[in-house]
């Protein structure tokens, strides 16, 4: 047998996984942003006066000039539909029972990716969309405290 010939007895693959389990802290800005969402039902923005740039979700430094951001504001619950997609497969490529709508709702100079509750035919890019929050006692300080976004006139 030559060295480059494959042994017929050889197992073709070795199966395994990478055991990576994580616990992520929310950090300086995340603490403030997600506690406001959980306790007050607010989506917060932070503003850099030097770069005239508004970050949503709020962050504690400006990525353009690295200044600390001290001007935090309530961004309201209504943003603008920047783009959306209708998903027919899940993340493993399996067909979904019901197609799922995902959108990018812009707030300030940033925005949030989330699920949409809407009839796909009614959606228009540029239309106002409102965050639907879970009731306060069910909120845990998570992006899922926002249940979804709906067209404002729904």
């Amino acid at each position: 047998m030559t060295l480059l010939e494959r042994d017929r007895e050889a197992p073709s693959a070795w199966k395994g996984s990478l055991p990576v389990t994580s616990r992520y802290t929310y950090g300086l800005a995340g603490e403030r942003f997600f506690r406001a969402l959980k306790d007050e039902g607010k989506i917060l923005a932070s503003y850099c006066p030097k770069c005239d740039h508004t970050y949503v979700p709020a962050v504690n430094f400006c990525e353009r000039c690295l200044s600390e951001l001290t001007e935090w504001q309530d961004a309201g619950l209504v943003g603008v539909l920047h783009t959306y997609t209708l998903l027919f497969v899940d993340f493993e490529g399996q067909p979904l029972d019901e197609p799922e709508l995902i959108g990018f709702i812009s707030f300030g100079d940033g925005g949030i990716i989330h699920k949409l509750d809407a009839n796909p035919d009614e959606l228009e890019i540029g239309m106002p969309m409102k965050a639907v929050l879970k009731p306060q006692k069910e909120r845990s300080g998570s992006i899922l405290d926002i249940r979804c976004f709906q067209p404002v006139n729904k």
Partner: peptide, 13 residues
């Protein structure tokens, strides 16, 4: 407490 981004920022700044 800081996220990896925030640690990076603190040192870079």
């Amino acid at each position: 407490l800081e996220t990896p981004k925030e640690l990076s920022w603190e040192a870079a700044k």
